[in-house]
């Protein structure tokens, strides 16, 4: 099973028979993991962001069958045994959402984003492209999170929640 399965939130799952099925639809319609959201189905809004081996991707542009042998974490898999992920808690405290529809994608994206910064990947607003450590300033966070759209206008709360969770840790 291991070599022909997709690992999703720690569980091995057989891939869909229909190769057209996106990873997003596989999560939502087959596995009933509805936490991953469909906002545009064309990679423009980020609501479907999940983590693959720790990297963030938009699952609407990914075919599920391509992810055999990979490790997927969705919003449902972020919380640990001892409660919610600290970023999830920060989103509540900083009011980083209104309707809650873009929220799982924002949170998963932020987890992946923080890992990118830890690896030293620069962004459009990074001054020193050769820096080994990226300081997650507000501008860095805003640039790196710009692939995740929010229409309610909770942007300030989202960035505040991410800053509290990751900016201090990265400095």
């Amino acid at each position: 099973m291991k070599n022909v399965a997709i690992r999703i939130n720690g569980s091995a799952v057989a891939p869909p028979a229909d190769p057209r099925v996106s990873l997003l639809d596989f999560l939502r319609e087959t596995l009933h993991l509805h936490g991953t959201k469909k906002g545009c189905n064309q990679g423009a809004c980020g609501a479907c962001t999940v983590l693959v081996d720790g990297e963030r991707i938009v699952s609407c542009l990914a075919l599920a069958v391509q992810y055999v042998g990979r490790d997927i974490v969705t919003i449902e898999g972020l919380a640990g045994q001892d409660g919610p992920h600290r970023l999830q808690q920060a989103f509540i405290e900083h009011d980083g959402f209104q309707c809650g529809y873009c929220t799982p994608g924002q949170i998963c994206s932020a987890v992946g984003m923080a890992a990118e910064a830890r690896r030293g990947l620069p962004s459009h607003v990074t001054d020193d492209l050769s820096a080994r450590r990226i300081a997650l300033t507000r501008d860095e966070l805003r640039e790196r999170m710009s692939g995740n759209l929010c229409r309610c206008g909770a942007h300030n709360g989202i960035i505040a929640a991410i800053a509290e969770t990751y900016a201090r840790a990265a400095e």
Binding site: H32, H34, L78, P84, Q88, I92, E93, D95, F97, T103
Partner: peptide, 21 residues
């Protein structure tokens, strides 16, 4: 007060219209 529906929404557990199977 923080939003009462917050714990559900940040875990992806709030069920929207297209999520009833």
């Amino acid at each position: 007060l923080s939003r009462i529906d917050g714990p559900l929404k940040v875990r992806g557990m709030a069920r929207f219209a297209a999520e009833f199977a």
